[in-house]
Design a protein around this nucleic acid. Structure first.
Length: 651
RNA sequence: GCCGCCUUAGCUCAGUGGUAGAGCAGCGGUUUCGUAAACCGCAGGUCCAGGGUUCGAAUCCCUGAGGCGGCUCCA
C-alpha cells in the first residue's frame, strides 16, 4: 500500500528520494517513494494502517521546505491581519500582540478573556472567509508619532502602545527623530505594521488555522502569557493540500511513533525524560558506538570512565554550582550534597593531573561515554531529543595553544566523515561569549579568535550566534533539522581556556622545563547518542541503512519444511557478522514479507523448494516495488554481498 | 516551569450520565502456502491516580501525574 499526496499528478517540482540502497543485490532499481513529488500513488484510502514509506535519501529539509516561501510572505502577513480582524470581531476587547509571517504560514498573539477552543478556530476561519470575500483594499497610513500612540491608546491596545513607546525610547536614546507611526488597515481593521502586504484581502489564498499555543509577550516568561494562533496560507488550494499532507507525513516519521512501531525504545512515567532501550534499539546504539570508537581509535583517542555520583565540591570548583545548579539532580548523602554528573568534563581533569604532563604528551585525547543527568524542566522534555539522562560520545582533548587549530581541523573532518556515514548534512554555528561567563576577557578573546581562525582555515561555512557559548567556552555547534523542521543541536566543539585549565590549575612542562597552561577542547560528535538516534530514525523514516539496521535481513521460509535450510543460511550470515532472523511463524509468505516490510528490515530472503534444492535464496529489498521479484542467489555470494554492503556503510 | 489540549486492552482507536467495545497483536486449533494481511475460536480492562457531585460517573467538577502542541530554557 502506498500513500498518495493530494493534487494533480506529476506536477510536483521537488526531487524525489533516491532508490533503496540495494545495488549489490537488486538488479533493477527499486522504486523510490516520492514523498513530495506529485506522483500519485495507488490504492484506496486506508485509515489507521497507512504504512510510511521512506524517501530513502529524503532529508527533513526536503520534507518541509518544499516550495518557495519568500514571495508568500506578504500574503501570510496579510492573512495574520485578517485573522486578527476576525478575532477582534468575535472577541471584542481582545488585545493584540504581534502577528508576523513565518515559514509556511503566520501567527498572531492575542490576550483574550478565555482560552480558545477548536470550535473557536473554525469560527475564526469562517469569519476570515467573509473578510477575504469582501476584498477590502489593504491601505497603508502614517500618523505623526503622538497621534499614532493616541490612536492605539484610544482603542485600548496596550501591547501596541508599548511597542511604540519602546520605539520612541530607542529613537530618543540614539538622538534620531521618532519616525511616523506606520499602520496598515483593511475594512474596519487597523494594525500597527511596517508591511509589506498584498493589495487587498481578496488576494489571500487558501488557508487553514492549525493550532493554539501559549506564548509569553515578547518571549519573556515574566510577562503575560498570550494565546498564539498558528495558521498556514498558500497561493493555491493544491499548495495548501500538499503542505497539510507533508505535515501529516512528517508526523508519521516522528521518532516517538516509530520507536514504538519498530520496538526500539519506550518511555514510562516512572522515569520521565528517560528512554527504556529495547533490544533492537540497543543494537542500533551499539552499532553507532562501535563505529565512533573505531573512528576515535584511528584519531589517537584513549577511552576513560569516571564516576556518575560526585560531591558538590567538584561542581563548586568547576563553576557548575553557580551556573548550572538548577539543572543538576542533587542528593543528600550523609549530610553532604552530591550530584549526578551533568557533564563529564571536570572529572577528566583528575586523570590529566594523575601525573605531571609533558608538552610531548599533548594532545591528550580522553574520550568517555558517561551517563549524564540534567534536570530539564518538565515542559521541555521531548522524546529522545530532549531527555533527562543521556550518553554523549564525549571527549576532552588537552592541547598546547599551538596545536589548537590543527586539532579543531581534525575534529571538523571527523564530524564530516561520521555524518557522511548517514548522509546527514550538518550546519555549523560559532557561538560566542554569553553574559555571566567565567574567566577573564583576554582568555575569551583569545579562545574566540582561535576558534574563528580554525573555522576559517577549515573552509566550512558557518553562522555566528552571539552570546550563545557555554559559561566556560566559545564553541562550534553543529545542527540538524528533524522531520518536523525543528532544529536540533548535535555535535559541539568547545575551546576552553578558563574552566578546566584555570579552575583546575592544569599545567604541562614545556621544552624549557617551565609550567604552561594547556587548552581543553570539549567535544562530542554525535552529541547525545539518544538525540542522534532519534534524528536518524526521522531522517530515514525508520528505514535505517543496512549497516545500522537492528535486523539486517529476515529469512522467510515459504513452508515449514524450509525452516532447516533457512536456519542454516542464518548461521552462515550470522557468521559473517550480519544480524538476521528466521521467520518461523506459520504465517503465509505474503504475511511474513508484510511484517518484515513494516519493520523496515533492509532485506528479506525467501527460501522455497527451488532455493533449498539449489542452496540459494531469493532476495527482496525493502524498497522493492510490489510484485517485484529477484532471481535467487547462492548462499555464499549472498553472504559476501551483504557483508560487503554492511562493511562499506552504504546508504 | 508557563498556556492550551489529551490519557479507555500490548498497539491504534470507538464509546458524553444507565450492562466497557472494535481492529491489529497475543494464546489455542486448522492450514504449509511463491513476493505487502489464510481461516475458526479463546483470552485480554484500576476506562492515568486520588477526591467530589449524582440513585448511578469512562462520561460532570477539583487536585495530581504523564503525554502532545507551543512559549521560555537548552552548559
Amino acid at each position: 500500500m502506498s500513500v498518495r499526496p493530494p493534487g494533480p499528478s506529476g506536477s510536483g517540482g521537488v526531487k524525489a528520494g533516491g532508490t533503496a540502497g540495494a545495488e549489490p543485490l537488486v538488479l533493477s532499481k527499486a522504486r523510490g517513494f516520492m514523498i513530495l513529488g506529485g506522483t500519485a500513488m495507488t490504492d484506496e484510502a486506508h485509515d489507521e494502517e497507512e504504512v510510511l514509506e521512506a524517501p530513502e535519501r529524503g532529508s527533513a529539509d526536503e520534507l518541509l521546505d518544499a516550495g518557495a516561501v519568500d514571495e508568500l510572505g506578504p500574503m501570510r502577513h496579510s492573512a495574520a491581519h485578517v485573522m486578527a480582524e476576525a478575532v477582534m470581531d468575535l472577541f471584542p476587547g481582545a488585545k493584540l500582540g504581534i502577528g508576523p509571517a513565518i515559514a509556511d504560514g503566520f501567527y498572531y498573539d492575542f490576550e483574550l478573556p478565555r482560552p480558545l477552543t477548536p470550535d473557536d478556530l473554525a469560527a475564526i476561519e469562517e469569519r476570515m472567509a467573509s473578510s477575504i470575500a469582501a476584498d477590502h483594499p489593504i491601505v497603508r497610513r502614517e500618523f505623526p508619532p503622538a497621534e499614532g500612540r493616541a490612536f492605539f491608546a484610544e482603542r485600548d491596545q496596550p501591547f501596541k502602545v508599548e511597542i511604540l513607546d519602546d520605539l520612541a525610547a530607542k529613537a530618543a536614546a540614539s538622538g534620531e527623530p521618532m519616525p511616523p507611526t506606520s499602520t496598515f488597515g483593511h475594512g474596519p481593521f487597523v494594525d500597527l505594521c511596517k508591511g509589506p502586504h498584498v493589495q487587498s484581502t481578496g488576494r489571500i489564498g487558501p488557508y487553514k488555522l492549525l493550532s493554539v499555543a501559549g506564548a509569553y509577550w515578547r518571549g519573556d516568561e515574566k510577562r503575560p502569557m498570550l494565546q498564539r494562533i498558528y495558521g498556514t496560507v498558500w497561493a493555491t488550494q493544491d499548495q495548501l493540500d500538499r503542505y497539510l499532507w507533508r505535515r501529516a507525513e512528517a508526523k508519521k516519521r516522528d521518532h516517538r511513533r516509530l520507536g514504538v512501531q519498530l520496538d526500539l525504545y519506550s518511555f514510562h512515567d516512572v522515569s520521565p525524560g528517560s528512554a527504556f532501550w529495547h533490544p533492537k534499539g540497543q543494537r542500533i546504539w551499539r552499532t553507532l558506538e562501535s563505529a565512533m570508537r573505531e573512528l576515535q581509535d584511528r584519531h589517537g583517542y584513549q577511552e576513560v570512565a569516571t564516576p556518575i555520583l560526585v560531591n558538590h565540591r567538584l561542581w563548586e570548583q568547576s563553576g557548575h554550582w553557580d551556573h548550572y545548579r538548577d539543572n543538576m539532580f542533587i542528593l543528600d548523602i550523609e549530610g553532604q550534597a552530591y550530584s549526578l554528573k551533568p557533564m563529564n568534563c571536570p572529572e577528566s581533569t583528575f586523570i590529566y593531573r594523575a601525573r605531571t604532563r609533558s608538552y610531548r604528551d599533548l594532545p591528550l585525547r580522553l574520550s568517555e561515554y558517561g551517563r549524564l543527568h540534567r534536570n530539564e524542566r518538565s515542559g521541555v522534555l521531548h522524546g529522545l531529543t530532549r531527555v533527562r539522562q543521556f550518553i554523549q560520545d564525549d571527549a576532552h582533548i588537552y592541547v598546547r595553544p599551538d596545536q589548537l587549530a590543527e586539532e579543531i581541523g581534525a575534529l571538523l573532518s571527523m564530524v564530516k566523515e561520521s555524518y557522511g556515514w548517514f548522509g546527514l548534512e550538518p550546519r555549523y554555528t560559532f557561538a560566542t561569549r554569553p553574559d555571566g561567563a567565567i574567566g577573564d576577557d583576554a582568555l575569551w578573546e583569545r579562545a574566540e579568535a582561535l576558534i574563528r581562525s580554525a573555522l576559517d582555515d577549515s573552509g566550512v561555512s558557518y553562522t555566528v550566534k552571539p552570546k550563545d557559548g557555554t559559561f566556560y567556552a566559545p564553541k562550534i555547534d553543529i545542527y540538524i533539522d528533524d522531520a518536523l523542521g525543528r532544529e536540533w543541536q548535535m555535535a559541539t566543539i568547545q575551546a576552553d581556556l578558563t574552566m578546566l585549565p584555570e579552575r583546575f590549575d592544569l599545567t604541562y612542562v614545556d621544552e624549557h622545563g617551565q609550567p604552561q597552561r594547556p587548552i581543553a577542547i570539549h567535544r562530542a560528535i554525535y552529541g547525545s547518542l539518544e538525540r542522534f538516534i532519534g534524528i536518524l530514525i526521522e531522517h530515514f523514516a525508520g528505514a535505517l541503512p543496512l549497516w545500522v539496521a537492528p535486523v539486517q535481513a529476515v529469512l522467510i521460509p515459504i513452508a515449514d519444511r524450509h525452516i532447516p535450510a533457512a536456519t542454516e543460511l542464518a548461521g552462515i550470515l550470522g557468521g559473517r557478522g550480519l544480524r538476521v532472523e528466521v521467520d518461523e511463524s506459520d504465517n503465509r509468505m505474503q504475511n511474513k514479507i508484510r511484517l518484515a516490510q513494516e519493520q523496515k528490515v533492509p532485506y528479506m530472503l525467501v527460501l522455497g523448494d527451488r532455493e533449498v534444492e539449489a542452496r540459494t535464496a531469493a532476495p527482496r529489498a525493502r524498497g522493492a516495488a510490489r510484485g517485484e521479484q529477484q532471481e535467487a542467489i547462492g548462499w555464499e555470494v549472498l553472504a559476501d554481498r551483504l557483508a560487503a554492503e554492511a562493511a562499506s556503510r552504504q546508504l
